[in-house]
């Protein structure tokens, strides 16, 4: 058989590489493309990313691990292992869920006193104190910007499981706290692209428009969309604790928005809706009374 000259082989390989590149580059760009605002309600329910291509649906198994990694980074590595008998709360998610950033949570001292001299020595070589990246970190004087270190894990968690809503909401909370509203908005668009009509994400988007972009009208419209999507959910989702909390948040923000616009009848209507699910109905009743007083003071208005 005639030997092919190396130059020809090289040319053939280069041609093959070029052909493959022209085929794969557009596909690879599409895998990692961030959806635009216009795309977020197109009904595509799954992210078409590189992890899906490599791992298939099995990638969802790793999403919780990625979320745990974000929490571990938030604690600068001081984190219980599977051998430590401890109920792990995700402190990284607490502020995003409206809870206070509690320094002494369940993961505070999961280690307990060292049982032997070897364990006591070992603890000198590993992170051994409960700290939060957002409040000083291990040294006590880490800037809050360092909390950005958790973001890659939250992004990976959403890549692994695009239906994991907590990863989006927690990521958006910290992006907003790091004064990155554009990135937070893009992340929410990505979440909505993968979870069309998700009322929690729509609520967060409204909050972002209201507080970071100071666009009250867009915020109100987004919250109205969130309310519609919430009402379109099944009975079980609406009566769950989280579902009620979300309804309370949406209606309260809509009421606040209407009150700022001077639309007191609408504000009272939303407050009445919030009262049905709120854990503080008396406080809301006071606000309703206040709204009705204002309504009565306005010429040409009637009680709703």
């Amino acid at each position: 058989m005639k030997k092919i000259p190396p130059g020809w082989l090289m040319a053939l390989l280069l041609t093959l590489c070029f052909t493959l590149a022209t085929v794969f580059v557009p596909r690879a760009t599409w895998w990692n493309e961030v959806p635009r605002a216009a795309d977020w309600n197109k009904g595509q329910s799954a992210a078409n990313n590189v992890f899906k291509l490599l791992l298939g649906e099995g990638r969802r198994l790793f999403a919780n691990e990625m979320f745990d990694m974000a929490d571990a980074y938030f604690h600068s590595g001081y984190y219980p292992s599977i051998f430590d008998q401890s109920v792990t709360e995700h402190d990284v998610a607490d502020p995003a869920e409206g809870k206070t950033e509690d320094e002494s949570s369940t993961s505070d001292d999961f280690l307990g006193p060292p049982p032997d001299w070897l364990a006591a020595l070992d603890r000198q070589f590993v992170p051994n104190r409960h700290t939060h990246l957002s409040s000083g970190g291990p040294s006590g004087h880490v800037s809050e910007v360092d909390v950005q270190e958790i973001l890659p894990w939250l992004k990976l968690a959403t890549d692994m499981n695009p239906q994991m809503i907590d990863s989006y909401t927690v990521g958006v909370y910290w992006l907003r706290r790091l004064h990155k509203p554009e990135q937070a908005r893009d992340f929410l668009f990505e979440g909505l692209h993968n979870n069309p009509g998700n009322s929690e994400l729509l609520f967060d988007l409204g909050l972002l428009y209201d507080e970071d972009f100071h666009d009250a009208s867009r915020a109100r419209n987004t919250w109205l969309a969130a309310l519609r999507c919430w009402q379109a959910q099944g009975e079980r989702a609406r009566t769950s604790v989280d579902g009620k909390r979300l309804y309370d948040n949406i209606t309260m923000n809509l009421a606040h928005s209407a009150a700022i616009a001077g639309d007191w009848p609408q504000a009272a209507k939303y407050l009445e809706m919030a009262k049905q699910v709120s854990p503080y109905p008396d406080a809301i009743q006071k606000q309703i009374d206040e709204a009705e007083k204002r309504m009565a003071g306005q010429p040409g208005t009637s009680k709703p």
């Binding site: 590595g77 020595l121 000198q124």
Partner: peptide, 24 residues
């Protein structure tokens, strides 16, 4: 695993006490 200080280095925990290093 006593000698694995990766978590400390990655998360900027600072130096381990040199006396503990000597014991190790």
């Amino acid at each position: 695993e006593l000698f694995d200080v990766r978590e400390r280095v990655v998360n900027d925990w600072g130096l381990v006490n040199w006396l503990d290093c000597g014991l190790a």
